[in-house]
């Protein structure tokens, strides 16, 4: 009997290998942040294979390494923030944004004894303050964008201290060399847990639904095989539905895959909801982000970024999923969200 079971399992395994071997492959690079977990949900629940694409995931230690691999065509897809692909595109690299992975997520962190002076919902509390940040990080770009929208001249009213890493920002806050600092997940949760710091505000409070990590691909590859990329996004759309409707299992998958403390994942994802895993390309958000980079003076020349955003593939993927599940509320909400933001 054992032999029969073993033979059956072996044949099943061989069949799955054979099926996977016949599927078009995508090599997908990412950085380990909690909101990037849709990849692991889609992988673990078998959505990629069900949609007809064989995805291999590669974790990178930094966005610059990842985007270099994408440029060298060692990857077919990359999720390395918004700034890195924009910088490369503005220098002539032919990448196209075609999906998203994370919306929101940045926080302003301070020492507990400084929390009271930053209370309230008005950005004017930051006037005269010294803020530590990692230059060109999403927090840097979006916070400056929010200040501009609020009519605050940050070049005059706020001192920004550019630091080399999230760790350096935490140290500067602890030492008091800055009044507060901008951090992203899971760094602000770790700063609270390990260093006793406090989140004063999430940037979402000032700038709703801003774009964070985007999904990009080399344009030539994307255009040559749109159907495979559509299948890839369809799997992520289904993973988004799972994430919205199965919190506990999602926390388990995120925690196991990203090796991040389970409490932090649950807190950021479902309790405080500081960021959202969402595959929508968020075209308007990308264009706003680019505008904020330009306004901050980081890039001296404008560039037609809109030519490097493809929302059609996502729309086709969403339509294909809705066609199979026409009454599903999550997918209908995704459609409304798409129409508003693209």
């Amino acid at each position: 009997m054992k032999r029969i079971i073993a033979a059956f399992l072996l044949s099943m395994f061989m069949m799955s290998v054979a099926v996977a071997a016949n599927l078009p492959k995508l090599r997908v690079g990412y950085v380990p942040e909690p909101a990037h977990g849709l990849y692991f949900v889609a992988k673990e629940k078998g959505y990629f294979k069900e949609e007809g694409v064989d995805v291999e995931l590669f974790q990178f230690g930094s966005a610059s390494e990842g985007i270099a691999a994408l440029k060298a065509e060692k990857l077919d897809v990359g999720t390395f923030g918004t700034t890195a692909p924009l910088l490369f595109i503005s220098k002539g690299s032919d990448f196209t944004f075609f999906g998203g992975m994370m919306i929101g997520g940045q926080a302003i962190v301070t020492r507990p004894d400084r929390l009271a002076e930053l209370a309230g919902k008005n950005l004017k509390v930051y006037k005269g303050k010294k803020i530590g940040l990692v230059k060109l990080s999403t927090g840097d770009v979006i916070f400056k964008g929010a200040l501009k929208k609020a009519g605050i001249d940050w070049k005059k009213d706020i001192t920004f201290v550019e630091l080399g890493s999230a760790t350096a920002v935490v140290e500067a806050i602890k030492k008091g060399s800055v009044d507060a600092g901008l951090l992203w997940p899971p760094h602000f949760s770790l700063a609270e847990k390990n260093s006793g710091l406090k989140v004063a505000h999430y940037l979402e409070e000032y700038y709703p639904k801003y774009t964070c990590c985007r999904i990009v691909a080399p344009t030539a590859k994307l255009n040559a095989d749109k159907d495979t990329y559509r299948r890839f996004l369809a799997a992520l759309i289904r993973a988004y539905r799972f994430y919205k409707t199965n919190p506990e299992e999602t926390v388990r998958i995120y925690t196991k895959s990203l090796k991040i403390d389970e409490g932090i994942v649950r807190n950021e994802t479902y309790v405080k909801k500081v960021s959202e895993s969402n595959p929508d390309p968020l075209r308007k958000g990308i264009l706003d982000f680019w505008q904020h980079i330009r306004e901050a003076g980081y890039i001296p020349q404008d560039y037609p970024i809109d030519k490097h955003i493809n929302t059609d593939i996502y729309k086709q993927a969403l339509d294909s999923v809705i066609k199979k599940n026409p009454k599903d509320k999550v997918y209908q909400q995704m459609l409304s969200f798409y129409k508003k933001n693209n």
Binding site: L57, G61, K74, T138, L258
Partner: peptide
């Protein structure tokens, strides 16, 4: 110099998870 440089921000990671290389991807 740091202020004038336009560098890709070092965005990541705070965890101690295993990093995968292009020689061997994760199929988990």
């Amino acid at each position: 110099l740091f202020s004038k440089a336009v560098c890709t921000p070092n965005c990541c990671p705070a965890n101690s998870g295993r990093l995968f290389t292009l020689q061997g991807g994760s199929t988990q």
